[in-house]
Write a protein that binds this DNA or RNA. Sequence first.
DNA 1: CTCTCCTGCTAAAACCATTTAGCAATTGCC
DNA 2: GGCAATTGCTAAATGGTTTTAGCAGGAGAG
Lengths: 344, 344
Amino acid sequence: MQKKRVTLADVARMAGLSTTAASMILTGRPDTRLSADAHAKVHAAAASLGYRPNAAARALRTDKSRTIAFISDYVATTRFASGLIRGALAAAEEAKHVMLVLETGGEPAREIEAVEAALDRQVDGLIFAAMRAREVFVPDIAISIPVVMLNGTSGRFPVSVLPDEYQGGRDAVRLLAEAGNAADIVLLGHNAEEEAGLFRSESISRRFAGIRDEMTARGLTFMAELSCWNWEPDHGYELTRTLLQQRRPRAMLCLNDRLAFGAYQALAEAGLVIPDDVALVSFDNDELASYLRPGLTTIALPHEQMGRAAVELLLDPPATTGTTLPMPTIWRGSIRAHTDGGAS
Amino acid sequence: MQKKRVTLADVARMAGLSTTAASMILTGRPDTRLSADAHAKVHAAAASLGYRPNAAARALRTDKSRTIAFISDYVATTRFASGLIRGALAAAEEAKHVMLVLETGGEPAREIEAVEAALDRQVDGLIFAAMRAREVFVPDIAISIPVVMLNGTSGRFPVSVLPDEYQGGRDAVRLLAEAGNAADIVLLGHNAEEEAGLFRSESISRRFAGIRDEMTARGLTFMAELSCWNWEPDHGYELTRTLLQQRRPRAMLCLNDRLAFGAYQALAEAGLVIPDDVALVSFDNDELASYLRPGLTTIALPHEQMGRAAVELLLDPPATTGTTLPMPTIWRGSIRAHTDGGAS
DNA sequence: CTCTCCTGCTAAAACCATTTAGCAATTGCC
DNA sequence: GGCAATTGCTAAATGGTTTTAGCAGGAGAG
């Protein structure tokens, strides 16, 4: 059991200098006029005593805590959440920062609590992460530190990190077309007509836009569009099953991996072989996608890069207001690589 | 843009009292002799100014920060990790604490960094969480605050939270036996002889012990024990497929849900129907388990309760040193409910 | 020789809340 | 009335760091 924490005064005393000198030297001030000898003595003393600055005292004085807050609606729902957190954590660690994680469940009262708890602790910045991108997000408190919106946007806080859903949407269609599945494509998860008045998230809207644009650019139309609100395996299964009773698609564009999972189940039941009878492309790169047989080719949500980007944007004054990150294509076996080369 | 943060002195001034009085009243000291009138005035002033105490100043003075650190080897691997975090977060929030999350990758250097970063910030307690329970965990730094081991144990820190794997193991076997699948059971994921000298984690060892004990208690033996080190769907698939070329089990006890997933794939390929031809029971209650058709009956790892328990143990001086939490049985369709009643 | 500037360093204030010690006025007791 | 105890409150110290203002001594300019 150690006696007490060693303080800057201890270091200064051991070095035979003032705390002022010790502080300046240890914080590495550039313009100091202290001698090389003084530097050496202070560093030696600090090392030999195992000095670590008291963060509370420093925060009190400087109003900086080398801490950022990651406030999100949900933490545990999908693997997406932990990917964002992991990326953010890694970037924070590299910048010698530390991260407070807070969950609000999307409830306004908890959001306020969370922001205040963070502000009380002198955090240097706030990341608002939206896991279920549907929710809109407005904690109405005066905030005078940098804010980054992660996987969402806000009128109040312009800096945001989003996946490039538009390009992702185009890529998905391109993949299918180039693999020779231009005809009889089914879109699983959304029907433009049925959902006309409804609002999905910004992100998802852009995904649709990309899909539509690439379809029309290639002169293609969907054989069917199957709508459902929650993109869970159950729905993918049911929709695909009823579809198969009437028609037989050559390809399916699934709006997420869980829907695709359901489609796999229905296709297998009907004795159809992937990718020979039906090719599939999907979105997210969920854990699932690698578990399926054959593996699911999917347009990945770049979780970790997004988390990382959010922290970097928070800590460096961002020149640009919004960042969109590319959604990489993860090639697996649910679609043939197209004729002229090109796995990845 | 607000002018400056409002401080305790502002509140005191507005109430026409000293900061001492304001402090005592706002922190709710029990033995104070201040008048009811003073209480009212201070509370009114604090409310009208929107006073929030500066956590850094308070931490500096009291050495308490209402912050705990959650240090884990991995954050993003499985849903297990986020379950633990989510539970811990919820309990912390209820206790008006806030949680620092740190990831070490199991690397000693990063572990030390993490502990020091936490200690520097005057955290009130440390949770060491082991996601990949295999790793043993020894950050060798003087720590004078409470420590709880989560999903792991340590010689230095006796307080721990673990799932009751032994009982879970027994339950799994009991389920199978009571569903009338006493014969031709295959154990998927472990072979006692092959792995004799090898060390899995404590948790897993206890799971095995529970399984063995319940088997012998019922006079049963496994038809086969299939060993593999990484419990991923691939291996479950391969092992089951080669097994099926020679023998046909009536039931499979899978050591986690991902292995079970692989088994599902191989069984489907062989045209076997679950649960009629083969019944399955597994462990973890991964996201997957609910996606499968039929749903996978599994002995759940109580993620959230564990995270919650860790925080509670950390904040209340624990009478007992180790806590084990029951692993609930999640009934789904991969095994028939046994004859005399009893779903749930 | 005086005045200014630089060098190398330090004293003390500031950050904001908590807490100890104690003051002045009133009440209680005999 | 005199003494002690109680009531209701405050001054000042404390925690550890950063930062502003400035001191003492020497060097260089004129």
